[in-house]
């Protein structure tokens, strides 16, 4: 089930700076809240996001509990060659969700 969205311009000129936008469905439970039984709800957040451009890491971030639920992330990268941009989200359970998009550089 598609639980992540990734948008990359389909075409770009070599050397252009492009914007990569992404969105992922995640509850991002902070670990600070208590449930109805009074016990704390265990933390469950996406702790790492990384982006690769043709296999080379171009962006990565360590996220903290203050990041919202269903987080949106956008960053800029220089278009160097045609290929794939892939984003990977890793959460506290070690579950990895990845999404990739193709870009053609002229």
């Amino acid at each position: 089930m598609a639980s992540a969205r990734l948008k990359v311009p389909k075409k770009a000129k070599k050397g252009d700076i492009i914007t990569v936008k992404s969105l992922i469905k995640h509850k991002m439970e902070t670990g600070q809240r208590k449930g109805k039984d009074g016990k704390p709800i265990p933390r469950m957040i996406i702790k790492k996001v990384s982006a690769t451009y043709n296999g080379v890491e171009v962006f990565s971030a360590d996220w903290a509990p203050a990041v919202s639920a269903n987080p949106f992330l956008s960053f800029k990268v220089r278009a160097t060659e045609s290929g794939t941009i892939e984003l990977k989200w890793t959460d506290d359970n070690g579950k990895v969700v990845s999404q990739s998009a193709k870009i053609t550089v002229q």
Binding site: S3, R5, K7, L23, K25, N70, F72, S74
Partner: peptide
């Protein structure tokens, strides 16, 4: 549309 988190549910429905 890309920053609207509601679209995650639209995607679910589309699937």
């Amino acid at each position: 549309d890309m920053s609207n988190p509601g679209y995650l549910w639209v995607d679910t429905g589309e699937d």
